[in-house]
Design a protein around this nucleic acid. Structure first.
Length: 266
DNA sequence: ATGGTGGATACTCCA
């Protein structure tokens, strides 16, 4: 069995429903994890899921900000026991499992706080929130010891030098500071492999996000790899292929993030 | 060094 899991920061699911058809056509995923849906659960455009051939839908949203959702061709079992990160109830994680021949695979869909502009936890409470969030997720997965799990999402950190357009120029820019990179690595090292870097060597540039604040995103190409797919070691032998849908940044009225996917041969 | 754009909401916050 092949299982393709896609992740995308859609930046408003109500505004970009049509793009989901393109995502499904290009990546042919079995599961789509979304972040920044920006809609309360009772206003989620549920019809889009069945239109796409994804009859199974789980969502955790709120008004205006954040929000995550999982659309699936296969039945989903919601993980009910996810923590309330930083006590904020701000809809940054939803997790579920799907059945596969070797047993269930758990999918964790995360939207990590962006962290504001100033990389200083005392001067900027959003940066403090980001670091606290990362410390809590690390502690949780240290205790939980994930198995047969895939963790995806907008983690809002580009950990490697080649994950940003200029390592030197971004060293003090939120998303690429050493303190964030260390925190993200400490979380990942609780039991995950970077599935995208399994396929793309660390010395090759790779981005999943380009700012809106650029006249010509493709020409300047000042991107960052903020979106990730991690798998537990027991799934590393199943890693079959990957795709980063760069063309999505050129879709009409695009998200500033592009979708990516990993296929597992289970 | 600065400001640039976009989404949701309601005259501002967040990215």
């Amino acid at each position: 069995m092949h299982l393709t899991i896609a992740t995308w920061n859609i930046n408003s699911v109500r505004l970009r429903q049509a793009h989901l058809h393109q995502l499904a056509a290009r990546l042919k995923p079995d599961v789509i994890c979304l972040q920044e849906t920006k809609v309360p659960d009772d206003l989620f455009p549920e019809a889009i899921a069945s239109e796409l051939g994804f009859p199974h839908l789980l969502k955790r949203g709120m008004k205006s900000y954040n929000g995550v959702a999982i659309l699936s061709r296969l039945p989903l079992t919601l993980a009910e026991d996810t923590p309330d990160w930083c006590g904020k109830s701000d809809c940054r994680q939803i997790s579920a499992s799907v059945e596969s021949p070797g047993g269930p695979v758990t999918i964790h869909d995360f939207y990590v706080p962006a962290g504001g502009d100033i990389p200083d936890r005392t001067a900027n409470e959003k940066f403090a929130h980001k670091l606290d969030f990362l410390a809590e997720t690390r502690a949780h997965f240290l205790k939980y010891k994930p198995r047969r799990a895939v963790l995806v999402g907008d983690l809002n950190i580009a950990p490697l030098e080649q994950d940003v357009w200029s390592h030197k120029q971004l060293l003090n820019v939120v998303s690429h500071t050493p303190v964030e990179v260390d925190a993200l690595n400490s979380w990942r090292e609780t039991g995950f492999h970077d599935a995208i870097r399994h396929f793309v060597p660390a010395d090759q540039k790779l981005y999943t996000w380009w700012s809106y604040r650029n006249r010509d995103w493709a020409a300047s190409n000042r991107g960052r790899r903020l979106d990730h797919i991690w798998v537990t070691p027991d799934l590393v032998p199943a890693l079959h292929s990957h795709e980063v849908l760069r063309e999505a940044r050129s879709w009409e009225q695009p998200s500033d993030h592009v979708p990516l996917a990993v296929t597992l041969a289970l």
